[in-house]
């Protein structure tokens, strides 16, 4: 009972945050509602027993990505070009249609849940064993590391201000 209420409140926060991202007039408010949405998703992970992912979500998204977006809003002066974006008539209609279609197919698909919620351990040790085990995700893990390095080099190269090296 209480768990249902908790789930409901968290999901409402997540959806409200997501709506704020898309509909907030000022871009700075949009980034703050993105933060609300991402923190709610972290709370969703906790209800699923995935505490490692919840912590990583807060660390990477709320601490890193959101701050990056705040920087982007400030540096591109996006909030100062406040023109009301003209609303397409077809975009909302097609979005609602798409949503209805997705929900319809989810309702038709029979997901077979083998266990209860939280059946999988979500602590740091068990997730680490999956990520680092050579038979499972060790190779993708290394590849993600190379990808991050490439992304870092690329971002620095793109964002540099002067042409000389």
């Amino acid at each position: 009972m209480i768990q249902d209420a908790v789930f409901l409140v968290i999901s409402l926060c997540a959806v409200a945050g997501a709506a704020g991202v898309v509909f907030a007039q000022r871009l700075f408010h949009a980034v703050l509602s993105l933060a609300l949405c991402l923190l709610s998703v972290a709370a969703i992970y906790i209800t699923l027993g995935a505490e490692f992912l919840a912590v990583i979500q807060v660390l990477v998204y709320a601490g890193g990505v959101v701050v990056l977006f705040l920087f982007a809003v400030m540096l591109t002066k996006s909030d100062l070009q406040l023109k009301r974006e003209p609303l397409d008539t077809f975009a909302p209609v097609s979005a609602v249609l798409f949503g209805v279609l997705v929900l319809f197919y989810i309702a038709r698909t029979g997901f077979v849940a083998h266990g209860e919620r939280g059946a999988a351990p979500g602590d740091v040790a068990s997730v680490g064993q999956v990520i680092f085990s050579p038979t499972k995700y060790a190779l993708p893990f290394e590849l993600v590391g190379i990808l991050l390095l490439a992304a870092m080099v690329g971002a620095i190269y793109l964002a540099r201000r002067d042409e000389r090296w």
Binding site: F28, L32, A35, F52, V55, L59, G63, D123, V124
Partner: peptide
């Protein structure tokens, strides 16, 4: 006594940057 204690501290202490940027902007 969270099992992910130290990681949790690292994660939530990065949040205060958002509050400071809110004040700044």
């Amino acid at each position: 006594d969270l099992p992910a204690g130290v990681l949790y501290i690292a994660a939530v202490s990065s949040l205060s940057t958002i509050a400071i940027l809110m004040a700044a902007w």
